[in-house]
Nucleic acid binder design. Sequence first.
DNA 1: TCAACAAGGATTTTCGAAAATTCTGGAATT
DNA 2: AATTCCAGAATTTTCGAAAATCCTTGTTGA
Lengths: 214, 214
Amino acid sequence: MTLAEKAYVSLRKDIVEGRFAPESPLRLADLSERYGMGFSPLREALNRLQAERLVTAESLRGFRVSARSPSEFEDALQARLLIETEALRLSILKGDDTWEASIVAALYALRRQTGRSDGDVDELKARHHAFHRALLAACGSDWLLDFFERLYAATERYRIPALLAAGPQKRDIDAEHGAIADAVLARDAPLAERLLRDHYLRTAGTIRSGMAPA
Amino acid sequence: MTLAEKAYVSLRKDIVEGRFAPESPLRLADLSERYGMGFSPLREALNRLQAERLVTAESLRGFRVSARSPSEFEDALQARLLIETEALRLSILKGDDTWEASIVAALYALRRQTGRSDGDVDELKARHHAFHRALLAACGSDWLLDFFERLYAATERYRIPALLAAGPQKRDIDAEHGAIADAVLARDAPLAERLLRDHYLRTAGTIRSGMAPA
DNA sequence: TCAACAAGGATTTTCGAAAATTCTGGAATT
DNA sequence: AATTCCAGAATTTTCGAAAATCCTTGTTGA
């Protein structure tokens, strides 16, 4: 892996997980020290992230972490619902039993992690992401999967700080995931779409209550 | 405008318009000579284009123009229909009369250009793009507009060579655009969506017949 | 007091060369 | 004849410094 790729992965993770405040400038000298590399690989990573809308750039004024706002969150949420319900519908239509097996596996792995008290949050997030990706993986559209990844990263920036602010959950998230998986495995597309939509809308509610009002 | 931005604009245009063959390597020495700049701004542009899926990159093996294939075209087409019908629906729901005026203006400008025999193809393409963007501009979703731009560029790569191969058009494209604009201005969302969809499916038919079979 | 300006420092952007890796073609070996 | 190996060339990747631009701060002049 080249340094530019490492820079991309690290920066993306640090931005999505909120280790840089939104709108804070990303100065090359600072990043160079933080990640231990020169300007060139960092600039390449920042350009990629700019195309993904995680950072913004202004000519001769460098890069910033892109802003967060309630309206941008609502936008990303609506786009996600559009993309994911369609991708899920297509997956249910086209997926084979290997795909079904991968959902069962992803759900199992996710539940093992939520049930654990030692709480490796990184691992939990990775498995949560993997489960949702597995649902859509058979949709057959690279574009939809690409958009899914973009929007997942964009909304993850809101989810993490909001969950910390919102305190203990009343939801049984394992049960929600299980219900979605059941509907998918039963090839009941309308039900699966409705459950997925509700799942996201419920999360969105939690996020809204953890965010400053618009 | 910085050199990196110029490089991005030029490279994107040259790729979309097919001046580089798909899958051909984009060697830095060649690009440096072609565009008259050093490696740094070119690499930054290539990284942005990689995030947009117009070029592919492989570690230590540089960049290539991304491949074209019938299946990728069908994928992009379906994604476009999903994104654009939804964005159009939202635009009709939310647009004000300034938005209506911008559609009238864009349609007028487009027709002036199609009626011209001196045929500045670049200008025609720009106005065609501007018209389709104007239709969606009031949707209120930055994400949908972003996806629209991506998919427009992706499908434009197929449209241009196919039109040259397909020979003279039997369609009255001005009339199709006019009908879409009329439905939009009448705020008839279902009709506008149907007309837009038909418009793209007809273009897709032309493109398919100009492409080698899958 | 205030606006315009300028000098100096900070920062981004770009270049040219060095380092690292891949590719190519031919010699050596089986 | 086919395969492996290696040296040299080609190419990508990275660095460090130079160039260009922006920002700050203090000064001047009205």
